[in-house]
Design a binder for these strands. Structure first.
Lengths: 208, 208
DNA sequence: GTCTATAAGAAGATAGAC
DNA sequence: GTCTATCTTCTTATAGAC
């Protein structure tokens, strides 16, 4: 990895742990193994490193969203799959979503950084909301809507059903961000949540 | 309000908006209407102001918890009330919890400050988790457990049922913290959530 | 592109008069 | 308890040699 990339990477790690203001250019340089002034040959300021991280994040998110099914880009293509989904498959979907958000290194550090910096800049708050609230609700709402259409699930209000599916996942995620030692507990709770969700909303095939 | 108290109050407001590191002693002094050095006659350092806020918060929380039913202190005393609860009363409970968390000025500012500072200090992360995840789940779990005992609600797993009740409230709260303009939307979603929750878990009296 | 030296300025905190 | 003046330290950023 080239130096410019490594600066951004180490900066993201530090920003996600201590927040932008508590990280000094010297800290970043140390990690990269160079002296602070050398940083300025790659970025014109500390803020420019931060901005580059945001841009890189947007790039990655768009790139990976399709593959990982986090926004609505290719939901209709997956329609057939979700028409005959089982409880176990629903658990796999929930687990994949949760573990991707939790373990993807870039995503995890970026989410923590956004959490810290979100009130500092309205644009970051908006990005946080889009990334971790609105987009997941929108995409999952589409998937669950397909399952309702197919009779796999039953619900009068798909939006609320989606909230019932995703809100616990979101809450467990914020829990693990704060205390990674609770990941095992969170995974057990997640599975129990999805099983109960499926039981509550099971349609014509009982989710089997 | 005496000056010492006003310093703490204005500091909390600023910390909740910009984070500890982005607030300068001079900013706090300005709001209070004194000069920065005068602050040091009341607190020995900027950090001491922050620490005083945390202490004050702990004091308030203990004091108000009983009255507002956020921890388990007096749950058993309320047992009778919850044995004959209706859907409308369940909505009132959810609304009160949500609006208290959202509108109580001290609570709101403190939660935003904790959100920003939580990764800076493990103790703050623990406090956040206790305050906004574990304690609410514990107390509401007790209440919902009483309703299950009374047959008002039906559930094999009360813990998960409680997660289904509270996680959407938590998520809507984090949404409103980031974008207060979405409060109306959140309140409508909250009511729809609780109605659907009640329908899903309704027991022997259908929640009526 | 990396270094050393250093400028420029910000921010926390103290001294001492009133 | 509040003020003005000031100290000290820290941090970003630049200059210029290699």
């Amino acid at each position: 990895m080239d130096t410019k990339q490594r600066i951004m990477d180490e900066a993201l790690t530090l920003f996600s742990e201590k927040g932008y203001a508590n990280v000094f250019v010297e800290n970043i340089a140390e990690r990269v193994g160079i002296k602070a002034p050398s940083i300025y040959k790659h970025y014109k300021s500390k803020q420019a490193i931060f901005d580059a991280i945001i841009e890189e994040m947007n790039r990655r998110f768009l790139e990976e969203a399709g593959a990982l099914q986090i926004n609505g880009a290719d939901a209709s293509a997956d329609a057939e799959i979700y028409k005959n989904i089982s409880e176990e498959q629903l658990i796999v979907i929930g687990n994949n979503l949760f573990l991707y958000f939790l373990h993807d290194d870039y995503t995890r550090r970026f989410r923590k950084m956004l959490t810290i910096e979100q009130f500092h800049d309205k644009k970051l708050a908006d990005l946080y909301m889009k990334q971790y609230v609105d987009d997941p609700l929108s995409y999952q709402g589409m998937l669950l809507g397909l399952m309702v259409s197919a009779g796999v699930l039953l619900a009068e209000n798909v939006e609320i059903m989606t909230l019932h599916f995703y809100a616990p996942i979101y809450m467990l995620l914020t829990m693990c961000d704060r205390d990674p030692e609770r990941e095992d507990e969170a995974l057990k709770t997640l599975e129990a949540h999805i099983r109960q969700f499926n039981r509550l909303y099971a349609g014509n095939n009982g989710g089997k």
